[in-house]
Structures are given as structure tokens and as C-alpha cells.
Design a protein around this nucleic acid. Structure first.
Lengths: 329, 329
DNA sequence: TTGTAGGCGTTATCAA
DNA sequence: TTGATAACGCCTACAA
């Protein structure tokens, strides 16, 4: 590999001048610029980004924390982020926490070792107090989900509204017994969604039934499990507000297999609006989340932090959500 | 951030000794080792991986080239790889080529800039002659797909067998008119699958009908498109060997919407065996691909290359494939 | 067993 | 406008 030294020698100039050409600095005669460029070309020279990072104390790698890539919501999110990052030469590092606190911390420590320059949390496991000390080592921000008391930039969705419009839709369809599924921890902003659910119920003067709350609802397997738990109850709900299209998918498949008509016997509402939602039979009614938008907004912010070496301001950006009515409700 | 210098000073020793402790070198008295460790602890010292990489000329970042992350096959593949990589402190960089030659080259160039230490191609756009020169800048290997004449390590699947057993299954079900879908370029080993299809047809003494070949079959949208193209033909196939579960999914959804019974009017065979395959109605018969296995095998190999700074041997590792019969055929 | 000193490939400061 | 030279943080001959 040719180094800046090689280029300098070939061009008959100093490393400093070559460096100036590379970085488009002023005060280089056109003539010398030309000869440097020619030498670079001839040697196939490309600056070593490692050396550059060491010298400038800058970073061009961003860690994105997600539970797992095989969850379509997150793969789509990372997809959107990567498009932007690649455009400007930044690298995205996949960090799958597998929903484990320790793994999240493992990746957070990469900030100290400089293996990543900044971190975007797209999901969170640890509480803010645990994460906060890492702010010292690089920009940290949240998108999609964040723990209470977060003191960092946030890009998120109006989950309260999501919970509200979803529930209201079911209520308007005449349902009075509506089950609710949620993913693990209620320590993040996802509990906002729950508040929206309660709000809608309140408006209709309906009580909340604890037995119709189902936690740990992540994927199709959970959907199946919850379907059975639901059907075993004496006082059965007539509708379910699931936590994701995955869960809805699993429930619908299992419902059909067991002769439960959807939506007649059981209405099922998804969340996300993934491509499969439209393809299922019945097509899944769901709450659309602008995944790409969150991704793009977040990554742009992070790139700005890294470029300007600026301290993130704790602003919060909230993106809208809307209902997509199909045939499962 | 504390540096090795700070630790040395606090421990009253030289940087060299500290470095020896960090890297577990022999010839350090237990006593000094202790005091170094204590100093590191006290300062919260963590080695700077950038500096280390520059000094040792080693790399701990691996670029994985895929068309796009939102394709479940690839997100699962990267998922599997990342698990292994994270275990040993290596970083995985997502490189979405979007099936574009130029984007693939963009990422290949990251090898020169040292933004990545090695590259795993999980899909390929450019021909081997174009890729070959980059071998000089770091280990390159292929998994899943590879261009003809590849001179690099390969981890792949027995696509010929995949095409063969899939087609044979349909033939055994009594089908004589079998359509075939394939993804874009026939320049990679995916053409092996096609050879398997032909082989099975040959054994049954059946001719190949060019009008039943459908290209550019990637996702659900393509499945829908191909369904319609299929139905418009005067002499219609009774079965379709699709190129992925996605495509099968789209076809089935569209078939149902148009009153075509699956599998009675049209048998549809998938490829991959993704989770949804089992959840569709009818559940999709498909050819199982051991995605995790390919991922794990490939990433382990790459880590070995990077660790030992060894030149890759052009070995080829072939993993098995098998049929999963459900209800769509 | 430990320390000194040089260098990995850059960029930035200063002097010329 | 250019060129020495000193860092960035680390590892590793070599010498002691």
C-alpha cells in the first residue's frame, strides 16, 4: 500500500503539501496540486482512514443498537440508516443486543475503545442512569424507543396517538372487550402506547381488564401463544390490539388453524404496517409507523454530531403515525 | 480519556510494561502486573483500538455485502454472522449494494482506505475479474453466491441439488408443466439451481419451455407480477418453482385474490424456508436453506484470516439443502 | 525483568 | 506557499 510518503517522494514534494492537496486546503499552487494528483493516481494512493482517525480524533463509524436484525421492523430501520451513512462514507455497525442488558453494555463499551464513534439506540435495555456515563465517550442518541428521564436527543413516534387511534378504531367497530399485547419492558416510551389504549377505553367508559394484558409479545411464536391463552379464558375478548404485525400474523395463522374466524370471532389489529400485513388473508389492519423516516432523521443527526464534534442537544423529534384499515378488524 | 501513558505514570512504570500487561506478555513480575491493573482500574483505562490497529496493522472490522437488509434471507444471514463476530470483539459493517455494480465497488474500495479489514460477499454484482485486484488489500471471500471463476474461499449451498429436489417433488406430484423463477443475473452460482431444474425435467423426459421462465423474481411484488404473466398464457403451467418464499408469498396472495386455488389450480413451491412460509395459508412447501450455518461458517473463516493475517486458501465449503413439504404443492 | 526509543500514516503547528 | 517536525496512542526491537 502506497503511503503519503511515497506520494510525496514521487511528486518531489513534502508530505505536508500532499496532505494539503488531499484535504483541499488553500495555499497550494495549481502546478503542485496537479503533480500531487498525478502521483496519487500513479501509485493508486488512498488515504489510510485508521491513521487519519488517530490523528484527527474523529470517527466515521456508528453503532446501531437493535434487539435483532431478523425483526423486520429493525432491519428496515437499519436499511434506511445505512443508505444515508454510505452516501457520506460513514459506516454502520450492527449491534444486536438480543434484548439483553449485558450485551447492550458490551456495545456501549465500544465507545470507550473507539470501535464506534457514536451510538444510536433503536431499542433500550438498561436504564438511563446506567447509560448516561457513556455520554463522555461519544454522542449517544435514541430513536424509536428510549428509557424514562433520558437526557439525550430523541427521534420517536407519537406512540400515545398510536395506542389511541388503534383502540378507538376497534371501539368504533363495536368491540367492548379489547385485549392488549406489549413487548417486554414497560420502562421505555412504549408505555405511552399503553396510555393511548387506556385513554380510548376511558372515553368509552370501559374498564381495563388485567387478564387481557399480554406481555412478552415480540414475534409470531408469541402471537400463537397469546392466541391460546386468550381462547382459554371464560370471558373472552372479541378483539386484540397486538404489539406488532409479527404477533398479529402468528395469531391469525393459529386462529385459522383452530377454526376461529378473523375478524368475525376475533378482530386482530397489528402494528408497524410491514409488507406482509397486506399479503395475509385476511389482510391485517394495522398502525403504520414511518420506519424509514425515523431512521433517516436519526442517522442524519448522528452524522452531524460526529462531523462537528458537537455536543448533542437534548431535543426531541416526534414523527406522526396513522391507521391502515384492512380486513382483520 | 486516559492513555497508556497516564497508566504508566500512575503505576510508576514505563509504557512498555503497561503494554505487556495489557497484552498478557510474559516477563512481568506479579507485583508490577498488579499495580498496573490497579492503575488501569483507577483511571478507567481502556486501550484505544484505533491506535492499536494503526500500530499492529490489524483489523477487526468486516464488511458484509448484501443486496438489502430488508430481504429476510440476508437479514437472517447477517444476524447469524453478527452473533459470532460480537463474541470475539469483531465488528460487522452492513454494506447494502442495492444490487448495483457501482455500490459494490464503493464498498470494495473501503478495503483500500482500511475502513474494513476484510469483505464477505453474500451477493455479487461484478465479475470476478473486477473484484480480483482487491485481494491485495485484504481477505475477500464469498458465501451463498459467487461469480464464475472465483479464486477465493467460498461457502455455499448445493444449489444444483436444491433445484433438482424441488423440481422432482413437483414432478412426483404429477405436474408436467412447471414454471421456473430466477433472480436477475445468471452469472452467479444460482445458475446451478437452474441446472438442477433441467436435470429433473430431463429425467422425466420433459422439454423446457422458455415461456415459463421468469426472471427478476426477488420479492412479493415480483410474485404478483409473475402470477399475472402466468395466468395470461394460453398453455398454462400447473406448478411454479419460485426463487424465494417472498415470491411464493406474493403469488399465493394474488392467486387467492383472483380465485385461483393453491395448490389445486396452481402448485407453488418456495425457496429458503423462512418463518412466514409456515404461517401462510396454505403453508408454503419450500427448499430449506441453512442460512445460519452459512453465516457462521463464513464469518468464522474471515475472523481466522484476519487474526492470522493468513492468505485465504481457495477452498470451497458446500452445505446441504433439503425439501420441506407443506400444503402449497 | 524492565525501560528507551522508534515508527505505524496522518495532520497541524510553526518557521522559513 | 512550502517544508520540518511534532504529535495522535500504541506496540516492539533492542539495550540495559
Amino acid at each position: 500500500m502506497a503511503t503519503i510518503e511515497d506520494v510525496a517522494r514521487l511528486a518531489g514534494l513534502s508530505r505536508a503539501t500532499v496532505s494539503r492537496v488531499i484535504n483541499n486546503h488553500p495555499y497550494v499552487t495549481e502546478e503542485k496540486r496537479k503533480s500531487v494528483q498525478q502521483a496519487m493516481e500513479q501509485l493508486g494512493y488512498v488515504p489510510n482512514s485508521i491513521a487519519r482517525q488517530l490523528r484527527t480524533q474523529t470517527h466515521e463509524t456508528i453503532g446501531v443498537l437493535i434487539p435483532r436484525l431478523s425483526n423486520p421492523f429493525f432491519s428496515k430501520l437499519v436499511d434506511a440508516m445505512e443508505n444515508i451513512a454510505a452516501e457520506v462514507g460513514f459506516q454502520l455497525i450492527v449491534c444486536q443486543t438480543k434484548s439483553q442488558k449485558e450485551r447492550e453494555l458490551l456495545y456501549l463499551n465500544w465507545l470507550k475503545t473507539r470501535q464506534v464513534g457514536g451510538i444510536i439506540f433503536a431499542s433500550t435495555e438498561n436504564e438511563w442512569d446506567v447509560i448516561k456515563p457513556y455520554k463522555e465517550f461519544g454522542p449517544i442518541m435514541f430513536c424509536n424507543e428510549y428509557p424514562p428521564h433520558t437526557e439525550a436527543p430523541i427521534v420517536c413516534l407519537d406512540q400515545l396517538k398510536g395506542g389511541y387511534i388503534g383502540t378507538k378504531h376497534l371501539l368504533e367497530r363495536g368491540h367492548k372487550k379489547i385485549a392488549y399485547c406489549y413487548a417486554g419492558s414497560q420502562f421505555t416510551n412504549i408505555r405511552e402506547r399503553y396510555a393511548g389504549y387506556k385513554k380510548a377505553l376511558d372515553e368509552y367508559g370501559l374498564p381495563l381488564n388485567e387478564r387481557w394484558m399480554f406481555k412478552d409479545a415480540y414475534d409470531t411464536r408469541d402471537g400463537k401463544r397469546i392466541y391460546h391463552a386468550l381462547m382459554q379464558q371464560a370471558d373472552r375478548p372479541t378483539a386484540v390490539f397486538t404489539s406488532s404485525d409479527e404477533v398479529a400474523l402468528g395469531m391469525i395463522a393459529e386462529a385459522k388453524r383452530n377454526g376461529t374466524a378473523v375478524p368475525d370471532d376475533l378482530a386482530i389489529l397489528g402494528f408497524d404496517d410491514q409488507p406482509i400485513a397486506e399479503l395475509m388473508d385476511p389482510a391485517i389492519s394495522t398502525v403504520y409507523q414511518p420506519v424509514e423516516q425515523i431512521g433517516i432523521t436519526a442517522i442524519r443527526m448522528m452524522i452531524r454530531f460526529l462531523r462537528n464534534q458537537s455536543v448533542p442537544v437534548n431535543e426531541i423529534t416526534e414523527l406522526p403515525l396513522h391507521l391502515v384499515v384492512r380486513h382483520s378488524t
